[in-house]
């Protein structure tokens, strides 16, 4: 059903614009004056001031690899993340864990694990798909490099960024 909206009857003052123009000028003048004395400014001076402390727990920053509390690499090189990654940012080279290793029982681990951060879109699918809870998106967001090679995170960097993840994690948190 159509709703009829009548045009409001404007007074002469409203029709000739001038009063509202002056009112508007007064408002902007107030802001200008305040900002001149450095008050009421909302800008955050980025590289010096950061919002990091306020990042939420479910923030999706750079994907990283983690070790458990015993220092074992959690990744078993199943390559599920490599297959699901939409922009194909992940490249894994699996290897068999040698006979004499403490974690021989795990059988496999990555020999090389590269994530091309120039490709990664921070979608978090790798974290979702990982059956071993080995890959997590942490809070680092300022990833820079001077060329493409520098933008690739290798296994060492990934473990350094990821650190230790103790115990079981509730990966299926409703915000993730």
């Amino acid at each position: 059903m159509p709703i009829v909206v009548n045009r409001p009857k404007l007074t002469f003052a409203e029709k000739c614009y001038l009063p509202s123009i002056f009112a508007g000028l007064a408002i902007t003048w107030k802001h200008l004056k305040r900002a001149l004395f450095n008050k009421g400014i909302v800008t955050m001076q980025y590289p010096e001031e950061k919002w990091d402390a306020n990042l939420p727990d479910w923030y999706r920053g750079a994907p990283t690899l983690v070790v458990d509390e015993n220092g074992r690499e959690k990744c078993v090189s199943c390559q599920l993340c490599e297959f699901i990654c939409p922009p194909r940012a992940i490249t894994i080279k699996p290897m068999e864990i040698p006979e004499n290793d403490k974690w021989r029982k795990v059988e496999k681990r990555p020999e090389e694990f590269d994530i091309d951060m120039a490709r990664c879109i921070y979608c978090g699918l790798c974290e979702e798909v990982c059956p071993e809870e080995a890959i997590f998106l942490r809070k680092d967001y300022s990833i820079t490099g001077l060329n493409r090679a520098e933008m690739v995170h290798d296994k060492k960097t990934l473990y350094k960024l990821g650190g230790v993840m103790k115990g079981l994690t509730f990966k299926w948190n409703e915000l993730k």
Binding site: H31, L32, R34, L36, I41, T43
Partner: peptide, 10 residues
Amino acid sequence: KVSAFIQDRI
């Protein structure tokens, strides 16, 4: 500058 100040920016 003026536009920034009017909009509470720097």
